[in-house]
């Protein structure tokens, strides 16, 4: 790890100004991706601004048809929340399947989606449910938030405050793990909400998380595993590595989508 200066502000405003005051500052949330990255010397921030001291970023609230998760809420808290499990069981289950227990005890939803790792789970939930991301500056829809591999619509000095998920009539997330890293090789989130049917895929896309309109249309017409069985995502748009060729990923997307629809009931 390269040397850096460390700051631990206690408000969002202080955090934003700490970042603005740094040459090349970076926010750290749970640190479960950033710290390994720093250890590998793949990043060299001048300053690290720890969001762990900002109370307002933590917590889960269910109101009406919306579940709002504070950016610094740990995965384990979401997974273990009776409120989340009651409102959107698929979201609690997804959080309970991220990484391993120790990652879930430290990792946060804000950190996960700000990083937008193409193999992360939360982006699939955000896109699959049509979440709204509230930042220190504005509100942005998940559709607009995820812009590419490790890329989001966030400005450098913009902090995620919370993520709001609409309740779903039916939803499920089914993931196929990378056998080595245990990140998602393919993860498919399917949901039927007031806003319509959504299918979001993580782990597979060359540009990160993406939706599958053909599957959404098919499921809107007929919510059943069979409806997506014949729909394949073009391998030309998918990642390929030693664990999965694009063809295998394409196949897995269809299989996982079927299983997700079945699981959603």
């Amino acid at each position: 790890m390269y040397a850096f200066d460390y700051h631990k502000p206690s408000s969002v405003a202080d955090a934003v100004s700490a970042l603005k005051g740094a040459d090349d500052g970076k926010f750290v949330a749970g640190g479960q991706t950033l710290i390994p990255t720093l250890k590998q010397r793949l990043a060299q921030p001048s300053d690290l601004i720890d969001l762990g001291g900002i109370a307002e970023l933590n917590g889960i609230a269910v109101s009406g048809d919306t579940v709002t998760v504070g950016a610094m809420t740990r995965h384990a808290a979401v997974a273990g929340s009776a409120d989340v499990a009651g409102a959107i069981p698929a979201l609690a289950a997804l959080a309970g399947g991220i990484g391993d227990p120790q990652v879930r005890n430290r990792g946060t939803i804000g950190g996960s989606i700000a990083n937008n790792d193409p193999a992360a789970d939360y982006p699939a939930a955000c896109l699959g449910l049509g979440a709204t991301i509230k930042t220190s500056a504005r509100e942005v829809s998940a559709d607009d938030f995820f812009t590419g591999l490790f890329e989001t619509d966030l400005a450098e000095d913009e902090i995620i405050v919370s993520v709001s998920f609409p309740k779903a009539e039916k939803a499920a997330y089914v993931k196929f793990d990378n056998p080595a890293s245990r990140y998602a090789l393919v993860g498919v989130f399917v949901a039927k909400t007031a806003g319509g049917v959504r299918v979001a895929v993580t782990g597979a896309g060359q540009d990160g998380v993406f939706r599958v309109p053909e599957m959404e249309q098919a499921l809107a017409a007929n919510w059943s595993p069979d409806a997506v069985a014949g729909i394949a995502v073009d391998p030309g748009t998918l990642n390929s590595d030693i664990h999965a060729s694009a063809e295998y990923r394409s196949h897995l997307i269809t299989v996982m989508a079927k299983r997700a629809v079945a699981a959603a009931g």
């Binding site: 460390y6 631990k8 750290v28 640190g31 479960q32 710290i35 390994p36 250890k39 690290l48 720890d50 762990g52 384990a76 391993d100 227990p101 120790q102 990652v103 005890n105 430290r106 890293s181 245990r182």
Partner: peptide
């Protein structure tokens, strides 16, 4: 951050002490 040989408890929860700064 995968092997878990470094797991300790931080405020009652297990955590990987190799994936956390001392200042945190």
């Amino acid at each position: 951050s995968q092997c878990g040989a470094c797991v300790v408890h931080v405020n009652g929860d297990s955590a990987k002490s190799c994936t956390m700064l001392a200042v945190q």
